[in-house]
Design a protein around this nucleic acid. Structure first.
Length: 566
RNA sequence: GCGCCCGUAGCUCAGCUGGAUAGAGCAGCGGACUUCUAAUCCGCAGGCCACAGGUUCGAAUCCUGUCGGGCGUACCA
């Protein structure tokens, strides 16, 4: 059996729980979680630790240190563990054996991180919706964060065994598109700035489209008769622009889903469902007292702050309604997991959508299958100035401009992923550019490139990593620096799984930084390739290769390249 | 006003389903290249974890309140 950190931890937790059962009886532990075995914070406390003794002390009326001692005594020797100690207020600290760590690292070196990541998805399907910006102009810095976040979450789930699809949903039939078409038409006929309607779009990109439109269709188009041409042309150009912006970051979708694919059947059906689900015999949907055509949804009945109009006087829907119908559609399509990635400006709407879904499918079902990630806004600092972004005014920093200014998709992606979604983010453009040689990304990539260099040197010297693990390697890797690096590698699969479970890709940047530091430190102290000592070289090379595979695999999950030379 | 998010080193941020001395990058200061890449490493300095209470054997982490900042509070999306 391949040595594996996750299995080792689970196994130890189970053994500890069983030991507790044998000593104090099965009713003492509330659940298996209580005996959880986690990474130790500090090497002097071993590799792993368990704090169950401190939690049990009161219940079994024994001091925590004594509780820990009895558990350790009951455990006896465990394969893969070199020692158990009781430290501090009652921690059970566990030191893994050199052979366990070395053979695990051999597996990493040969097969990479993949086989050691827990199969959380187990082939189940997930749909990740992100960006979903209406096609009215180029994507901005704000979308950039969401794009990178959604893509990284998708990759992360994919790495954990989920079958992931990415979807972009947009409204192609609403008032916004009408305004966009109208704004294009003004440019097309060479109208004045003041002709652009209230709420219309003023970006320069529209002039270019207008020119192209003229050369394609001539200059005889009229708003009254060719409305659809203007609108659909604008939509097409806008979506082309969005797609190519996303491509700059290496982001693609499995499907672009438009609102018109829903209307009218799906929306009507959804309204029907909501009508039937009212409590106290009262429908969730009710007509406006002043107009039979206008419909309200009784959100207050669902614990939301206020009722909302879902269908206007003229029969068109407000944005919440198709959004709910779209989510119903996604539920119906049978995905095991739905992930929505939204900016904080959509929080309120999202809550309403979730409330409506709970009314239709039941709260348990929704809680089990839908997870919403809300990220905070990005403030762009440029020349010490804060830039407020707005697509409509035409004043904004576009995603493509940003990627160009930062100078690299890798850097852009990585920098956006170093903060957790809920944290506000100041993105200092000057700093991103200026620091680009001493950037956290390059720090990590450099570790990868350095190891690649070692591998090249090793190849020239005829040193390689054997296909099969050789138990004698354990002795070579017993030095403090080797040991330290193996300890670090041991924690990676578990940490990665935790990042996936919480949908927090930023944790991978933390893992990568510590991995790179670990390697750089190791490199400083240990010579790997030594022509006179082939077995030593090969053993250490194995460790380097394990490290390199982990870095490459984790960077891959973030969508960042792992260069072999820098 | 109400709802959600945030407040940790000079700056940007990790750490938050409670645990053992609070971390990183940048900026500052001082060291280390005859070496598989110095885009590196080592050291120093820098903190009432916004504030006040509470729960606990134990709180940056959980609860309450206060003060700051962001977003939302549309028959726009």
């Amino acid at each position: 059996m391949i040595p594996d950190p996750s299995r080792m931890r689970d196994g130890l937790a189970r053994m500890i729980a069983e030991a507790v059962d044998r000593i104090w009886g099965p009713e003492v532990l509330e659940d298996d979680q209580q005996a959880e075995v986690a990474s130790s914070s500090n090497p002097e406390f071993g590799d792993l630790s368990c704090q169950v003794a401190m939690q049990l002390a009161r219940k079994v009326r024994t001091g925590p240190v004594e509780v820990a001692r009895r558990i350790v005594e009951e455990l006896g020797p465990v394969p893969g563990v070199s020692s158990f100690t009781v430290d501090g207020p009652g921690f059970i600290n566990i030191t893994l054996s050199g052979s366990f760590l070395a053979s695990y690292c051999h597996s990493l070196a040969v097969s990479g991180l993949g086989p050691h990541l827990p199969d959380l998805g187990a082939g189940r399907t997930a749909l990740v919706e992100f960006v979903s910006s209406n096609p009215t102009g180029p994507l901005t810095v704000g979308h950039c964060r969401q794009a990178v976040l959604g893509d990284a979450i998708s990759r992360l789930l994919g790495a954990m065994g989920w079958k992931v699809s990415r979807e972009y949903y947009y409204n192609d039939g609403g008032r916004q598109m009408e305004l966009l078409g109208r704004s294009l038409e003004v440019r097309y006929r060479g109208g004045e700035e003041s002709d652009i309607p209230e709420g219309g779009y003023r970006g320069n990109y529209l002039s270019g489209w207008a020119e192209d439109l003229r050369s394609e269709y001539g200059d005889g188009l009229e708003w009254e008769s060719d409305r659809d041409t203007f609108v659909s042309y604008a939509e097409k150009r806008a979506m082309d622009m969005i797609r190519s912006d996303l491509e700059l970051l290496g982001i693609g979708y499995d499907r672009f889903f438009t609102e018109s694919e829903l209307i009218p059947e799906a929306v009507d059906r959804t309204i029907h469902m909501l009508k039937r689900t009212g409590t106290f015999g009262e429908s969730l949907v009710y007509s406006d007292p002043g107009s039979s055509n206008k419909l309200w949804l009784r959100f207050t009945e669902l614990g939301r702050p206020q009722d909302r109009v879902i269908r206007r006087e003229d029969g068109s829907y407000t944005y919440r309604m198709p959004d709910i119908a779209y989510h119903v559609d996604k539920f119906r399509r049978g995905y095991d997991l739905l992930v929505d990635v939204f900016g904080s400006d959509h929080l309120d709407t999202s809550r309403d959508v979730v409330a409506a879904l709970e009314a239709i499918f039941g709260a348990d079902e929704v809680r089990r299958r839908l997870r919403v990630v809300i990220h905070q806004f990005v403030t762009l600092l440029c020349g010490g100035e804060r830039i407020k972004m707005s697509t409509r005014s035409g004043e904004y920093v576009t995603l493509s401009r940003l990627v160009e200014d930062v100078g690299s998709a890798d850097v852009t992606r990585y920098l956006f992923l170093t903060r957790r979604a809920e944290a506000h983010m100041d993105f200092d453009l000057d700093l991103a550019r200026r620091e680009s040689s001493e950037n956290p990304v390059y720090y990590v990539q450099y570790a990868h490139a350095r190891i690649s260099g070692i591998l090249r040197t090793a190849e020239d010297a005829g040193v390689n990593v054997p296909e099969e693990y050789d138990p004698r390697m354990e002795d070579i890797l017993s030095g403090v620096h080797e040991r330290e690096l193996m300890r670090l590698l041991e924690s990676i699969p578990v940490e990665t799984a935790a990042a996936a479970e919480s949908l927090e890709p930023h944790r991978l940047t933390e893992i990568l930084a510590s991995l790179a530091t670990g390697f750089h430190r190791f490199y400083q102290h240990v010579r790997v390739v030594d022509g006179d000592r082939p077995f030593e070289s090969s053993s250490r090379l194995m460790l380097c290769r394990a490290c390199m595979r982990c870095i490459a695999d984790l960077l891959g999950i973030l969508g960042v390249n792992a260069p072999r030379r820098m």
